[in-house]
């Protein structure tokens, strides 16, 4: 067991190293650097050169790679070129915001998806089943920015129920803890709903499919024969088994908690990782890009691993 775990860990480290190195060379070889982004007429070519030297961009690529690698291994993430602060601080500010939005977004996605699936699976092929599946697929099939635009138009501008952007009003800093919580919840509503609406269709499809599969199983028939109500059979017997594939889906969603969605963050002025990443990429902010990549890759690998572990724990059949 321990050797298996260690082996898996080693493989994961290799994956992280592969991806981070790949990104390093991708960014280093891509045309343009921090200095070429500066299009200001005040900036003379000499100033550009000075910027390059200041951030060590004039050194040969392999030297930069080696110093990045040694720094990272020793736990030093370096300083962001763009924000001129330690990368650690930049990430520490953005990460919690992304995690909050992603968590509640995924939560809504799951709850909505499950609710839809249960209603649909209780009477498969009925009118309601068809309608709901059409609607949830419709939301799934809409580009995210359009769903966001519709939500904003409806619930922020036509009926101003929720604030259209940001995590809190500037005055909110003076509020009590409870007040701040309510403030965040209000601001979270529309972006989280956007995540939930665009994702629930997929969840509903998975769960509905596996619920229908489970309904064919002998144990369901047996339960029905024992006189259990249809609802009870669906909820107590079939649902837990039907949820198994969701573990994998959730595991694959883990990276979303640290990477965030650029489109949603831009539209709702949400100060998360998506925006930080985008800014870092356009400025070729190598330390920030590298740190972000290591973080996201780790999340991907960890998500896979967690899904496997959870799966074998939940379903002893696949344990070997």
């Amino acid at each position: 067991m321990t050797t298996r775990l260690l082996r898996r860990l080693a493989a994961s480290l290799i994956v992280v190293w592969l991806v981070a190195s790949g990104t390093f060379f991708l960014v280093a070889l891509a045309p343009g650097d921090l200095a070429s982004k500066m299009a200001d007429p005040r900036i003379s070519p000499a100033a550009r050169q000075r910027l390059r030297e200041h951030f060590g961009l004039h050194r040969p690529i392999w030297k930069r790679y080696v110093s990045w690698l040694t720094d990272t291994v020793s736990g030093n993430l370096g300083d962001s070129f763009l924000f001129r602060r330690p990368v650690r601080e930049v990430l520490a500010a953005a990460l919690p915001n992304t995690a909050i939005l992603a968590f509640w977004g995924l939560f809504l996605e799951l709850v909505l998806g499950l609710a839809l699936a249960l209603v649909q699976a209780s009477k498969p092929h009925s009118f309601w089943d068809r309608l709901l599946s059409a609607l949830s697929l419709g939301a799934y099939a809409m580009p995210t920015f359009l769903v966001a635009a519709v939500l904003l138009w409806l619930f922020a501008y036509t009926f101003p129920l929720f604030p259209p952007s940001h995590m809190a009003e500037p005055q909110a800093q003076g509020l009590s803890f409870g007040g701040r919580l309510a403030e965040t919840a209000r601001h979270l509503a529309l972006p989280a709903l956007t995540v939930g609406l665009t994702g629930c269709g997929a969840v509903a499809r998975y769960v509905r499919g596996s619920l229908l599969d489970e309904k064919q199983q002998a144990y369901v028939l047996a339960a029905l024969a024992r006189g259990c109500s249809k609802r009870r059979v669906l909820l107590i017997h079939a649902l837990p088994n039907a949820l198994l594939p969701m573990i994998t889906v959730l595991g694959l969603s883990l990276p979303f908690l640290v990477s965030g969605s650029l489109v949603i963050e831009v539209i709702f002025s949400w100060p998360g990782m998506g925006q930080v990443f985008y800014a870092a990429v356009t400025a070729r902010d190598v330390p920030l890009i590298q740190a972000g990549t290591v973080l996201v890759t780790t999340a991907v690998v960890a998500g896979n691993w967690l899904a496997d572990v959870a799966y074998s724990w939940a379903d002893p059949r696949i344990r070997r």
Binding site: V15, L26, A30
Partner: peptide, 22 residues
């Protein structure tokens, strides 16, 4: 399979950039 994981983890934005730049 490790390479599949790596490909999944590679940020979309960079690859887009690299491709559009070259």
């Amino acid at each position: 399979m490790a390479l599949v994981d790596a490909a999944l983890a590679l940020p979309l934005l960079f690859v887009l950039l690299a491709v559009s730049a070259f």
